[in-house]
């Protein structure tokens, strides 16, 4: 089956005063219909930049290049600005981390949702629009629709605002939702509610989803496939259960082991294994594999040669010596 979204060798560079900063390098992934792809990485790993590049939302100081950047039959790199507007919001929509600042504080919530419908479906007349908005608010689990419709963003809680953002995102029945840290600013109990809502939309409306997050737990519970990013590159991609239970890339393994909750039987207060050092400076990149200065299994080859993506039995891993099921290099 042809995937809904196909990305091949996406690269994004920023011009900075210190030099060229390659924020995303040779990133390839795809999303099929109805699938949830989780992208995990630490801050600065390029996970958000990649998605902003898809949406064409990056600032002018960036250079985006790719072999393929295809959504349905649209080439996202060669859209006219009019086409881009209709794809953005109409076919792909985005949910951001901070719901409070993504809504305009000067207008009532209801009219902001109406506005977004107005842009993409101008043929709907105003009385139907109102009805449509109320249906949307119900769909995202808001009980007192009437009150929320007339509220200003500051009168609503963070979780409520995020529901409104989701209502706006699904207003035009998009095929793909990109959720960039949708629950990071929210409390755990609210986070669970919002994630449940997204999962429901995915199930019932067959919306594909890209779930960008730093929280592996969120991806484990809600994604079908996972892509782990490190320093602008995808280091490992695969089915969630396979990657989590048997990580092949040392970085994925380290990320999981550093979580206090990864081993439920872990001794109380034992030191957590963690990678030494920091994410490399991308402007002055280390030679060879980007993880080599921090990798516990580093070999001589890793320091001189940069590994490319290897596909082994349906799993994608960027490492010369992928880890076996025992957790050591095979």
């Amino acid at each position: 089956m042809k995937p809904l979204l196909e990305v091949q060798n996406l690269s994004v560079q920023f011009d900075t005063l210190r030099g060229k900063l390659p924020a995303v390098q040779q990133l390839s992934f795809s999303v099929t219909e109805g699938e949830v792809l989780g992208i995990v990485g630490e801050s600065g790993s390029g996970k958000s930049v990649a998605n902003l590049a898809l949406m064409g939302l990056l600032p002018k100081s960036s250079h985006v290049s790719a072999d393929t950047l295809r959504f349905q039959d649209f080439d996202l790199l060669r859209l006219s600005s009019k086409q881009r507007r209709s794809v953005r919001g109409g076919l792909i929509s985005m949910i951001f981390q901070d719901p409070m600042s993504s809504l305009n504080p000067c207008y009532r919530v209801g009219s902001q949702i109406e506005e977004s419908i107005n842009i993409h479906q101008p043929e709907v007349d105003s009385s139907h629009r109102r009805q449509h908005v109320e249906q949307l608010l119900q769909a995202v689990g808001i009980v007192d629709v009437e009150r929320v419709y007339r509220s200003y963003p500051h009168e609503l809680s963070g979780g409520m605002c995020q529901r409104v953002m989701i209502a706006m995102a699904i207003a035009c029945n998009p095929k793909l939702i990109i959720a960039d840290e949708p629950t990071t600013a929210l409390d755990v109990t609210i986070q669970a509610q919002i994630l449940e809502l997204l999962a429901k939309l995915n199930r019932e409306k067959k919306m594909s989803m890209i779930l960008v997050t730093h929280d592996i737990g969120v991806v484990v519970e809600h994604a079908d496939r996972i892509m782990v990013m490190y320093a602008g590159q995808a280091v490992e991609t695969g089915k969630v259960d396979e990657v989590i239970s048997h990580p092949q890339h040392p970085y994925t393994q380290a990320l999981l082991h550093a979580l206090p909750g990864y081993h439920s039987e872990r001794e109380h207060r034992t030191p957590l294994p963690s990678l030494a050092g920091l994410v490399p400076d991308l402007i002055h990149r280390p030679q060879g594999c980007l993880l080599s200065p921090r990798c516990p299994f580093v070999q001589d080859r890793c320091k001189s040669e940069e590994p490319s993506i290897e596909i082994v039995s349906g799993r994608v891993c960027r490492c010369f010596y992928p880890l076996g099921s025992s957790g050591d290099p095979s």
Binding site: T16, G44, S48, L58, P59, F96, Q97, S101, T184, A185
Partner: peptide
């Protein structure tokens, strides 16, 4: 609760 910059452009 990441206090990291809200948008990527901001980060850079």
């Amino acid at each position: 609760m990441l206090v990291n910059p809200k948008s990527v452009a901001n980060h850079y």
